[in-house]
Computed example of a mutant assay.
Amino acid sequence: MGRRFTQSATGAHVGAEPRGPIARDIHWAGETRSAIGVASLLYSALLAMDAGFGELDATRGALWTGLAALLFVILLPSRVSAGPGLLSARGLLVEHTVRTDSLVSVRWSDGVAQRMILRDTEGSQVEIDPTVLVRNPEMWRRLDTDTRTSLQRGTLLCGETALRRLAQRIDRETALTVFKVSGLQ
């Protein structure tokens, strides 16, 4: 990916990414299409309304274009992927990556939009929507395996409760899915 690898005094490759298959958010494309659809619908409605009232001009058209673009940026989900030892969240302009095998903390931010904030020993931080992990079992397995590594190494000082909450939520969702598929619900 164009990263340069340098060797530290200990012989470790700084900047090297672990090799192996990468798990990606399988619902990202659909959510992106939804964001485009909602922004387009708002844009079309605003233009149609202004045209119907006879008030559409270049200034108002530019205003509605900007408003629709802002809504798209707000609704666009981060593209989350997990590889061995890494979790990345790519937004519209930036990508944040955290080493999941050397996590220091995992915090849960409740509010209007729940967020899980992961921080590693290098100071990197990633903020993701926990439903991404709920909907992508392969990504959750990678994170779970790597957080266990962090616990064994003693680097994960804060966050066992947040991870336990997420694991319980995933177990609940999995059980509900199994019941639905088997017709027991």
Results as ranks from 00 to 15, higher is better:
residue 64 W to H: 14
residue 36 I to E: 14
residue 76 L to Y: 12
residue 99 R to F: 09
residue 23 A to N: 01
residue 93 L to V: 11
residue 112 V to Q: 04
residue 25 D to Q: 03
residue 32 T to V: 12
residue 116 M to L: 15
residue 68 A to M: 11
residue 38 V to C: 10
residue 39 A to D: 08
residue 43 Y to P: 04
residue 118 L to W: 05
residue 54 G to R: 03
residue 13 H to T: 08
residue 33 R to K: 14
residue 37 G to I: 14
residue 54 G to N: 08
residue 97 T to A: 07
residue 35 A to C: 13
residue 13 H to R: 10
residue 39 A to I: 08
residue 114 Q to N: 07
residue 15 G to F: 06
residue 102 S to N: 13
residue 95 E to R: 08
residue 114 Q to E: 15
residue 85 G to M: 02
residue 60 R to A: 14
residue 90 R to M: 01
residue 31 E to L: 13
residue 77 P to Q: 11
residue 80 V to Y: 02
residue 78 S to Y: 01
residue 19 R to F: 00
residue 96 H to Y: 03
residue 68 A to F: 00
residue 99 R to V: 11
residue 91 G to Q: 12
residue 83 G to N: 02
residue 17 E to N: 03
residue 42 L to I: 14
residue 16 A to G: 07
residue 101 D to S: 09
residue 87 L to P: 05
residue 35 A to F: 04
residue 85 G to S: 07
residue 51 A to E: 08
residue 51 A to I: 05
residue 96 H to N: 12
residue 43 Y to G: 13
residue 64 W to T: 07
residue 17 E to K: 06
residue 63 L to F: 11
residue 26 I to D: 09
residue 94 V to N: 13
residue 71 L to Q: 04
residue 84 P to G: 06
residue 17 E to D: 06
residue 81 S to F: 03
residue 47 L to C: 07
residue 73 V to W: 07
residue 91 G to I: 10
residue 73 V to D: 04
residue 44 S to F: 07
residue 46 L to I: 04
residue 96 H to I: 04
residue 32 T to H: 00
residue 104 V to N: 12
residue 16 A to R: 04
residue 102 S to A: 15
residue 26 I to E: 13
residue 100 T to W: 00
residue 108 W to P: 04
residue 80 V to F: 03
residue 40 S to H: 04
residue 20 G to H: 03
residue 120 D to N: 09
residue 67 L to R: 01
residue 44 S to P: 00
residue 106 V to G: 05
residue 105 S to R: 08
residue 81 S to E: 13
residue 12 A to C: 04
residue 24 R to D: 06
residue 104 V to W: 02
residue 110 D to A: 14
residue 65 T to G: 13
residue 17 E to T: 04
residue 35 A to E: 15
residue 30 G to A: 12
residue 69 A to E: 10
residue 23 A to H: 01
residue 115 R to V: 15
residue 18 P to K: 00
residue 121 T to I: 11
residue 70 L to Y: 03
residue 43 Y to W: 13
residue 89 A to N: 04
residue 88 S to Y: 00
residue 95 E to M: 09
residue 23 A to C: 05
residue 103 L to H: 05
residue 29 A to P: 02
residue 27 H to I: 00
residue 22 I to V: 15
residue 30 G to F: 01
residue 117 I to V: 14
residue 80 V to W: 00
residue 115 R to K: 15
residue 19 R to G: 05
residue 41 L to S: 13
residue 109 S to M: 11
residue 57 D to T: 01
residue 117 I to A: 05
residue 111 G to Y: 10
residue 39 A to W: 02
residue 13 H to P: 00
residue 107 R to A: 15
residue 74 I to E: 13
residue 43 Y to L: 15
residue 41 L to W: 03
residue 114 Q to A: 13
residue 44 S to C: 02
residue 75 L to I: 08
residue 80 V to L: 02
residue 90 R to H: 00
residue 14 V to T: 14
residue 98 V to G: 07
residue 59 T to N: 10
residue 99 R to Q: 15
residue 119 R to T: 15
residue 42 L to F: 12
residue 92 L to E: 09
residue 112 V to T: 05
residue 84 P to C: 00
residue 59 T to K: 06
residue 79 R to Y: 01
residue 65 T to S: 10
